[in-house]
Design a protein around this nucleic acid. Structure first.
Lengths: 354, 354
DNA sequence: TTGTACGCGTTATCAG
DNA sequence: CTGATAACGCGTACAA
C-alpha cells in the first residue's frame, strides 16, 4: 500500500498542498468548507504525515534515546517502564540500547543516538565508564541529557538518583537498633559510586553507634554473578569468623539471596542465626524464604522523574527558555521483612520512611 | 553546536554538494585528491549525515519497532536483550513499546510505529488481543511483521514461538515417569493460547499414561498476580483434596513459587510432600529453596531468531526478492531441579533435551 | 571527473 | 481565504 501524501490529497481536490496542510493542522485561515473536504478525504485515505519529512522540516524526531547497562535487571526493567509511560504521555517514542557495562559500546551508542537525531538522551552509566567525553559531546550538540542512577557527578546536566550512602546508613542503623552488633558487609566492586557510597553508609552507621569498623567483616563481590558471590562469600565468612557474625548488609538483594542459599544448605537459620539486609527490593525478595529486608529504590519513580525532567528540558529548548539542571534525589525506604527480625514469629511487614 | 551539512563542506572546499556526497559514499567517479580533501574535512568537522534527510530520501528509517506486553518480566527482558543484540549487528535501532496487556494500547502503538516509518515490527501480543485488524494494517502497509511468543495463528506473517503443548506434555510426562500420579495443574487464564496449549499438554500426558483426567485437579490462575494465585490456589487445593495430591504442574514459575511459599508457611515439604514443576525458568527459580524444576524457553534465542528473520525480510523487501513467511519453533528443555526429585538428597541439576 | 537539477513530504512566509 | 515559493539535507539520473 503506497502511503498517501499531502500532494495526493491536493490533486484529488484540486487545491494546493499548502491549503491541505493548513486545513489538516487546523489553521484558522481556511474556509470551513474546504477544511471539511480535506479532513474527510484525509480520513478516508487514512492519511498519515510522513514523519521523516516532518522531522527534517521541524528539526525534531519526537524520539528520545535511553541507554542502560542491562535490560535483564529487575531494577532497570522497572525504570524503563516508568520512562515508557511518561514518554507515551508526551507523545514520544523511546529507542532503547544497552551498553552491557561496556564503555566503548556506550560511547558508540551515544554517537548512534546523536546521528539519529534524538531529541534527548537518558542514560545510566556502565560500571566501566570513567571518562565522559561522550557525554560532553551530547552537551556540545545541545541535546538535553539526563543521567540516572549510575551518574557522574562531574558532568554538567540533570541527574536523578538515590542517596546510596544514606540508604545504607539507614539500613545498618536499623540493624543496630534491632540489637545486632557484629554486622558484616558484602560490598560491590570498587568502581561504581553506588558501591562506594553504600559501603561508606555502612561504615558511618557503625561509627555513629560506637561500633568499631572492622575491615575483616567487609567482603568484596566482584564476579558479576551476585548470587554466587553471596554464596561463596558466606562460606568464606563462616570459615573466617565462625558463627560470631550477627548480620550481613549486602549491596544488593541477590547477594543476600546467595547467602540464604548457603545458610539453607548448611543448616544455618536466617534470621535467628544470621540476619540479612539487602538492597533494591527485587521482586524475588518478597517471595523468598525468609522474605528479605531490603531498601526500596522506587525505580518506577526514577524512570518517571527522569523522563519528566528530560521532556521539560526539551520543551524549554524548543521555546528558547533557559534550562537549569536539576539534581533530584529520590527518597528510599527500608522494607522490613523476616530476614532481619530475629525470633519473632509473625511475618511483620512494614515500610519505614526515614 | 550547529550540525554540519554536506553544503557546508562543499562551500568550504568550493565544490558541489554532489561531489561531496559522492566522495563520502565512496563513489568511484571522484578524483582521489578531492576525495581525500572531502574526507579529511568531514572528519575534522565531525560530519554526520542528517538521518531525517536520509530516511526521507531513502524511504527507510533503520529503526524497527518492538511491542511487548510488559518490560517487567524476566522472559521478555531477555527477549529484548536478544533483539537488541541482533539489531545492533545489523546497524539498526529499536523503538520499544509496551502494551500493558491492553488491546487498545497495542493497536495505537502499531499506528504510532507505522507513522514513524519503522522498517519492521516485532510484536508479542497482549492477552486481550482477539482481533487482528491492526496487524493486517501493518501487512497492508507492506511493513515486515513478525509475531513471537504470543502469536496469532491466523495472521499471515512470520512467527517465532515455542511448542507450549509439547513442553507441558514433556514436563508432566517427566513427573509421571518419576512416579507421581495425582498431578494437579494450576493453569492460566482461558484466553492466551499458551495457557490453553499448556493445559492441553498436561491433559494429553495424563491420558497417554492411562491416568484419568480429573477436572477437579485443575485450578485457574487469573488474577494477574501469579504469586498470590499460586499461594491461594494451593490453600484451596489442600482444602479440596487434603494431602492426596502428588505434584503440581504450574503454567509459570511464579505460581509454583507461590505454592512453595504456602507450603513453607504450613509445614508442607517440597518435594517430599508435594512435587512442583514450573514453566519459564525464571532466574529466581534457580535460587529459591527448593530449586524449582521448570521448562526453559530460551528467550534470548527467541529474541535473536525473531530479529534475524525480520531483518532478512527487510533486506529481501529492499531487493525486491520474494519473501516467504517462516514459522520457527524454538525447542524447549526440561530443567530438572530439586522440586520434582522426591527423597533424593543430592542437588541433581541436569538439563534434558527432548 | 564534476556539477546541475530534481525530488523525497512537509511547513512557513508572504503575496494575492 | 488561497496558493506559489522556498527551505529542510540528501541522493541520483543526467548533462557537461
Amino acid at each position: 500500500m503506497r502511503t498517501v501524501t499531502l500532494k495526493q490529497i491536493a490533486e484529488e481536490l484540486n487545491i494546493s498542498v499548502t491549503t491541505v496542510s493548513k486545513a489538516l493542522k487546523g489553521y484558522s485561515d481556511v474556509s470551513k468548507e474546504t477544511k471539511k473536504r480535506v479532513l474527510d478525504l484525509a480520513e478516508r485515505l487514512d492519511y498519515t504525515p510522513n514523519s521523516f519529512a516532518v522531522s527534517l522540516r521541524m528539526r525534531q524526531s519526537k524520539i528520545i534515546g535511553v541507554i542502560i547497562p542491562d535490560t535483564v535487571h529487575y531494577f532497570f526493567s522497572i525504570v524503563i517502564k516508568g520512562i515508557l509511560k511518561v514518554a507515551e504521555q508526551h507523545d514520544y517514542m523511546v529507542i532503547l540500547m544497552q551498553s552491557n557495562e561496556k564503555f566503548e559500546l556506550e560511547k558508540k551508542q551515544i554517537d548512534l543516538l546523536l546521528s539519529k537525531g534524538v531529541d534527548g538522551i537518558l542514560i545510566s552509566l556502565s560500571n566501566n565508564t570513567k571518562r565522559f567525553d561522550h557525554l560532553q559531546k551530547v552537551i556540545k550538540h545541545d541535546i538535553p541529557l539526563l543521567l540516572f542512577d549510575k551518574i557522574a557527578k562531574t558532568v554538567n546536566c540533570s541527574k536523578v538518583y538515590i542517596d546510596d550512602r544514606k540508604a545504607a546508613y539507614d539500613a545498618v542503623t536499623y540493624l543496630i537498633n534491632k540489637g545486632y552488633r557484629r554486622i558484616a558487609h558484602f560490598r560491590g566492586d570498587l568502581n561504581p559510586q553506588n558501591s562506594i557510597d553504600r559501603f561508606l553508609g555502612y561504615k558511618q552507621a557503625l561509627l555513629d553507634n560506637n561500633i568499631p569498623f572492622d575491615p575483616k567483616l567487609v567482603y568484596m563481590c566482584n564476579n558479576n554473578t551476585d548470587f554466587d558471590d553471596g554464596y561463596n562469600n558466606a562460606k568464606q565468612m563462616f570459615e573466617d569468623h565462625g558463627h560470631t557474625i550477627d548480620a550481613v548488609f549486602t549491596i544488593t538483594d541477590l547477594i543476600s539471596i546467595g547467602i540464604i542459599k548457603y545458610c539453607d544448605d548448611n543448616g544455618i537459620k536466617v534470621p535467628d542465626d544470621l540476619a540479612l539486609f539487602g538492597f533494591s527490593n527485587w521482586f524475588m525478595s518478597s517471595v523468598i524464604n525468609p522474605e528479605l529486608s531490603t531498601v526500596e529504590q522506587h525505580p518506577f519513580k526514577i524512570g518517571e522523574t527522569s523522563a519528566e525532567i528530560l521532556f521539560d528540558e526539551i520543551k524549554r529548548k524548543l521555546n528558547d527558555e533557559p534550562i537549569e539542571y536539576k539534581k533530584v534525589v529520590i527518597p528510599t525506604e527500608l522494607v522490613i521483612r523476616k530476614s532481619s527480625e530475629k525470633s519473632e514469629n509473625n511475618p511483620i511487614k512494614k515500610v519505614i520512611n526515614l
